[in-house]
Design a protein around this nucleic acid. Structure first.
Lengths: 224, 224
DNA sequence: CTTCAATGATGAGGATCTTCATGATGCTAA
DNA sequence: TTAGCATCATGAAGATCCTCATCATTGAAG
């Protein structure tokens, strides 16, 4: 996975690279507007980290150029804190995410990871399996073109399943993922059972096959 | 902040150190039971990452020795996945947290950060301010020795405030902290207002002063 | 095959969270 | 000082989530 770090603060760029390298990403740098524009237009990256404040020009122009070229590199905009207008404009032009300075490196890594996972589902952020369609961007689910309204937890479950399709996922992992309660010893999965039941019900009642198999004593498995 | 990494898989230990160094921690290593026992008993660390599977002995004995010496180093147990018995036993003996292999480095960092923050509140995990007491470990809140029952969101808010006491915290930060919804553009703080109102109400009705001041146009500030 | 215990499914109820409509309060400019 | 606007507070209603009691299913032992 290749990442382009467009950032003129050298110290920041280096610490980002150190951190991301530990996560098995390969990093390249661009410190000026012209260099960034050249690299972004010439090569392909799985993710471009774009600082808007650059010597030599407005970083937003790089994003515009990428979109004009129909390049599909993931772009995360990085900017001074509180610049809500940049955020809105960047996302409108087609950036995939936005991060305000100062930020914590783990959060950056989490967003890159999330972005790349999203991209891996396909060009237009769609996951399809027969009559079932999930729009990762709009966060909507349809069965035979009819929309299925899921709650937040149900949607998170579904996404977790399809991003681990054909693999068994443990109840522990599911419960911790849902609750966010990473520290505690979870000895009760009732809430998990409830959400899974509701998710299954909504999908099958909408006309979808039951792709979610129970693996007795272990967890669940989404079959595609 | 000093961290002792007790781990015999050298590659893993190195990537942990690389990652944690980027977060401004200083890391030391121990690869064997004897070395680990010596360093843990001799020096002080803000956090000890303890792999239970060590050449030369059972890692749990190191934890026991630390507790017998009344050492207050934070300890996070790291062990093969699914070993729930280890988890329970380790936490009973006095470990502060538990992480199953394999894990993601950002999660490790998050737990270390959380642990150190907890420790910084005091030896016995208590935060006191006049008639108000918060037990970080039991996650309970009392006013004049009467227990106040808070919901999860209310408790998270309170903790966020006191860990930023005497500083103004923005509504954006609060809302993102509460919702976990880091990506979206939050333009609605109604849920935040609701939780803050309920938190304030519970505390004042229990007899506590109102330490939470509204900073018009910006956010809130907890005064101590 | 039958029994039994462990695991998972289900519906209902209560707790919690979010949204909405409305009212109160603080800022700013005339 | 007051009018007007933006911001914040509040109570209530609705949506979502979690818990509980009960029932169904699975796998293993006899």
């Amino acid at each position: 996975m290749k990442i382009l770090i467009i950032e003129d603060e050298k110290a920041l760029a280096e610490s980002m690279a150190t951190y991301l390298s530990a996560e098995q990403y390969f990093c390249e740098f661009a410190e000026t507007f012209d260099d960034a524009m050249y690299k972004a237009e010439t090569f392909h990256y799985d993710c471009i980290l774009l600082d808007l404040m650059l010597p030599g020009g407005d970083g937003m122009k790089i994003l515009e150029a990428l979109k004009a070229d129909n390049k599909e590199d993931g772009v995360i905009i990085i900017s001074a804190k509180g610049a809500l207008e940049d955020k809105i404009r960047g996302l409108q032009i087609g950036a995939d995410d936005y991060l305000s300075k100062p930020f914590h490196l783990p959060e950056l890594a989490a967003r890159i990871h999330s972005l790349i996972r999203r991209k891996s589902f396909g060009n237009n952020n769609l996951f399809r399996q027969n009559e079932l369609t999930i729009d990762l961007l709009a966060k909507t689910v349809t069965v035979n073109d009819a929309k299925v309204v899921l709650t937040k937890k149900e949607y998170e479950l579904l996404l977790y399943f399809i991003s681990n399709k054909n693999r068994v996922v443990s109840k522990t992992a599911l419960a911790e993922h849902l609750s966010g309660d990473v520290a505690g010893i979870l000895d009760n999965y009732d809430f998990l059972y409830a959400h899974i039941k509701n998710l299954k019900k909504k999908l099958t009642e909408a006309g979808a096959d039951n792709y979610l198999k129970t693996i007795y004593g272990t967890g669940y498995k989404w079959q595609s």
